[in-house]
Design a binder for these strands. Structure first.
Lengths: 141, 141
DNA sequence: TTCCATGCAAACACTTTGCACCGTG
DNA sequence: CACGGTGCAAAGTGTTTGCATGGAA
């Protein structure tokens, strides 16, 4: 939390209970959509508003305290950045999420930088596919 | 087009003018959102409905004729599969899109398969970041 | 003639915004 | 006590669905 106050102060923003509650909820949840964050906050304390959740998640992301990635075709999911940087594998069949450290991608990132002049942001990356347990996709229809 | 009729027949689906128009539009556009596909179709022929566009893109994807990826935080973009398989780099600053062949990822895919039991779908992949021209993002923040 | 496909409009899910009030600094 | 933050409600996007009609096979 102290990290939060600090960052807020640096940016001339105010410390509010809502901001603390929301950051704490994201930390606890691991990966969560704005809706899920709202629900989590509400289990602990009183009702805060969904638009505050959206505004706050945006703020926290600007402060570098959380990140978001698109783990489904629908809502984005936020996760705390205190966890080390990672990217996500999402199984299209069982929807299991695996977090993978950035090392695997080191070579690829270097090549993309050298050959395509592009600096990729690993923390935001999501790769969809299938885990071996769900291996066989449907044949035709 | 003949490819379309063929695939449709294989799946017991019907060939309709809308389906041909929409596939042709995706081919022409390269990367396009459902909205853009609709607009493109309308420049050529008469009004077709947005819900038909959605339904048809879904069908075409099931037939393996188009694919979609998430190139922005908003709408998905569809592209024809006649272009060889590729993934996308998207610059957060200038929104330029670079298509990259799957080879760069060969090693990574092998490692993900071996170490995480995960078969990633390259064709759907998007990596966000910055191209060198847009290089320096803000510090901190 | 049979059903699949389409158009239309309404419903949905998610997100953003305007404004008055509240509370931090 | 000034001004940024919040709650609330309404409006905005992007997408899906139910149903009656239309048209491919």
């Amino acid at each position: 939390m102290s990290d939060l106050s600090e960052r807020l102060r640096e940016h001339g923003l105010r410390r509010t209970p809502q901001r603390e509650l929301i950051l704490a909820a994201v930390d606890r949840l691991g990966h969560a959509t704005p809706d899920e964050v709202l629900a989590e906050v509400r289990t602990r304390s009183e009702a805060i508003n969904i638009s505050t959740v959206y505004r706050t998640l945006e703020t926290l992301e600007e402060l570098g305290l959380v990140r978001h990635a698109h783990l489904s075709d629908r809502a984005p999911t936020y996760h705390s950045v205190v966890d080390h940087e990672h990217f996500h594998l999402v199984c299209r069949n069982c929807h299991r999420i695996v977090s993978v450290g950035p090392d695997v991608l080191a070579d690829v990132l270097a090549r993309l930088r050298d050959e395509h002049g592009f600096v990729a942001d690993v923390g935001h990356l999501t790769m969809f596919g299938r885990c071996v347990e769900c291996a066989e996709p449907e044949e035709e229809t």
